[in-house]
Design a protein around this nucleic acid. Structure first.
Lengths: 202, 202
DNA sequence: CTTTTGACTTTTTAAGTTACAAAGTCAAAA
DNA sequence: TTTTGACTTTGTAACTTAAAAAGTCAAAAG
């Protein structure tokens, strides 16, 4: 393997790791496999990343960035608060479908490795802040009436996310939800979003 | 151990099992312990129940009955749909706090043992039906405006339950939530309930 | 005839072991 | 500065096994 500079090699590794991780999960991917994909030695990977966890974190960070770019765009091109709130559902769903094997939520369930737990807190805050901007827009347009905008944003987010768990409750979910289950969740989320939007409307 | 009749003995066993199960969980309770509590032999337990699972199910059924009795009462004494919907939160919380060690939700996560899965479906339907009655009341009083009452009831239920998961997400929950976490959940559920109620109001 | 039981067998589970695979290191080479 | 093959260390999945708990039953008790 030969690249022009250090950063490029780092990106190549990140790319290869993302491919493996999102197809088979990080747990089922060995450092040797990633090295083989890149036609380089395993030791090289350790020259760019401190350990497997560090690589995993870097992949997660990259993907997270991609996620937020999408929402940020949506916030900028917002025509109305309600519309923006609706759009989140599809955007998030597309994201989850693409990267669900990255063990984003599995990591949380087991025991958040402190390092990631902190990052997750940041992510949540950031996401809530973006949703708050959408609600704020609605308030300024005179559409919405909300006491605490940030609180409402957090609640909107958690209510939608929560449906993912409660809708699947009782169904033995071996790994990822099926397409059918995904559709069920989205449908419910859309309905809840409409009621929520009406609930905070003037 | 001596009792007047068969049913009484069955009840004694159920009572003893509930005590153990709700203090230590069913998994950490042995049939011998229950027998010792009752000063009878383990074999006696098997005279009244086919196996440990059967006993566990019977305990769950008894507790479930208790749960529904409370909601049914609430439905009967309903002054308004909105009020009834609000009351569910407290009622359910009291119930969970009391019986959270009965592995009600743990059972679902692992793999529903078919037998219980079916019963759970029934329970959900029954609960949804009761909530639907509350919403129906609101519709008939001219307070609510809802397309599909049953669907709205299901959504209300799942949205509230879902908050229990999403609010705790990222927090390493070793066993049961703490009091603080419980309070957080209830607070969020109440806020969501208000928005939901406003969202289906005329 | 119904209910209870002690003594028994079978099944589950937790602890300990081991062997292999994967993680991680490093001195030397490119 | 970057890469690598050969190496050591660590983690994990597959067996083994001994204790504990589940579950059975023929006989006893009322």
């Amino acid at each position: 393997m030969h690249t022009e500079n250090k950063d490029e090699m780092r990106d190549k590794i990140l790319e290869a790791a993302l491919k493996r991780f999102s197809q088979f999960s990080a747990a089922k991917t060995t450092m040797n496999e990633i090295a083989d994909d890149l036609h380089c030695s395993k030791a090289s990977l350790y020259y760019y990343f401190p350990d497997k966890n560090g690589l995993h974190n870097a992949v997660l960070a990259k993907v997270g960035e991609f996620y937020f770019k999408g929402i940020e765009e949506a916030v900028e091109n917002m025509t109305s608060g309600a519309e923006a709130l609706r759009n989140i559902i599809k955007h998030r769903h597309d994201f989850i479908k693409k990267f669900c094997r990255l063990e984003l939520f599995k990591i949380l369930k087991d025991g958040p490795p402190a390092q990631i737990a902190e990052a997750m807190m940041e992510v949540k805050k950031k996401e809530t802040a973006l949703i708050a901007k959408m609600i704020e827009k609605g308030v300024q347009d005179g559409d919405f009436e909300v006491e605490d905008v940030v609180q409402a944003a957090e609640l909107y987010n958690q209510a939608l996310i929560g449906l993912r768990f409660s809708v699947l409750e009782g169904i033995p979910h071996l790994g990822e939800p099926t397409q059918e289950e995904f559709d069920m969740i989205i449908s419910k989320q859309k309905k809840l979003a409409e009621i929520f939007i009406k609930g905070i409307s003037k």
